[in-house]
């Protein structure tokens, strides 16, 4: 790992999904963990939002001495302020979570920053394996527990998936003692969002199975019958070799043999 690698991690205020209490956001904490693994204490922690958020200290308690706070009201738009700050600081890698845990949670922040800075965006990474010659080897998390190796040119923005390494515990005392620097930015109001209506989430209606049968006998059958569908191919009298061949063909067609 090069010694002059600059790494910034954007952190947000998380929210417990059931109680709604403010907490360290899960994906952001993983991003901090990944950053600590790569550059240690030189990691730059960044938050755009209201001051006096005690939760931010749980990120600092992971082993950092200071962080930067871009102060703005909670209804503000964080992206322009972050974009200006990052364009000025020019870190090599910016790590974020995939989605916020409260508010709109559109997951657009990394993409908007990437667009504003003109940097490539890599999504849902699980690990950064190495950085050399101005390129980074990144492990991306795919659905179903799979991983993909990517090579990206520095600088870039990456969002960290839940598949990344679990974050270390936060130490309370060091978190309290760490310093939060306020950087002054001119806050921008989120005009569009002020017109939206927010309400506690309604339970989504379950999709009903509508029986399209025309007669009572058909409806009865649809409601009671076990799956009779035997559309499948049955190989009964073939030799074991032919049967294995058929299975092999299916596995190759489905692309599960790697």
């Amino acid at each position: 790992m090069p010694h002059d690698l600059n790494l910034a991690v954007l952190v947000s205020i998380g929210q417990h999904p059931k109680s709604g209490r403010a907490r360290r956001a899960e994906q952001d904490a993983r991003a901090v963990e990944l950053g600590l693994k790569l550059v240690g204490e030189r990691l730059e922690l960044l938050h755009a939002g209201e001051a006096q958020q005690e939760v931010l200290r749980s990120y600092l308690g992971m082993g950092l001495k200071e962080m930067t706070l871009l102060e703005q009201p909670s209804a503000g738009d964080a992206v322009p302020a972050l974009g200006r700050y990052l364009a000025q600081k020019r870190p090599d890698i910016v790590l974020t979570g995939v989605r916020a845990e409260s508010g709109e949670a559109s997951g657009m922040t990394p993409y908007l920053l990437g667009e504003a800075l003109g940097w490539p965006v890599v999504t849902r990474i699980a690990d950064i394996i190495k950085v050399e010659n101005g390129e980074a080897e990144v492990l991306q998390a795919l659905p179903r527990g799979q991983r993909r190796a990517l090579k990206v040119r520095l600088p870039f923005v990456a969002s960290v998936d839940l598949a990344a390494e679990t974050p270390r515990q936060s130490a309370y005392g060091p978190g309290r003692r760490a310093r939060i620097d306020n950087a002054s930015v001119d806050a921008q109001q989120d005009q569009l969002r002020s017109q939206w209506q927010e309400a506690p989430a309604r339970k989504r209606p379950k999709r009903l199975k509508v029986a399209k049968a025309k007669t009572a006998a058909d409806r009865f059958k649809a409601a009671t019958a076990k799956s009779q569908a035997s559309g499948g191919q049955v190989l009964q009298n073939e030799s074991a070799q032919e049967q294995a061949q058929a299975l092999f063909k299916l596995l190759v067609e489905e692309g599960v043999l790697r």
Binding site: S227, V234, L235, A240, A244, L247, F248, V252, L257
Partner: peptide, 26 residues
């Protein structure tokens, strides 16, 4: 077998042996 899209009726040990061989060749 009623649920399956492909059913192989026979001794599983033989079929698996053939399958392992096929995949290793592949």
């Amino acid at each position: 077998v009623k649920r399956a899209d492909l059913s192989l009726i026979g001794d599983s040990q033989e079929i698996l042996a053939e399958l392992i061989q096929l995949v290793e060749q592949h």
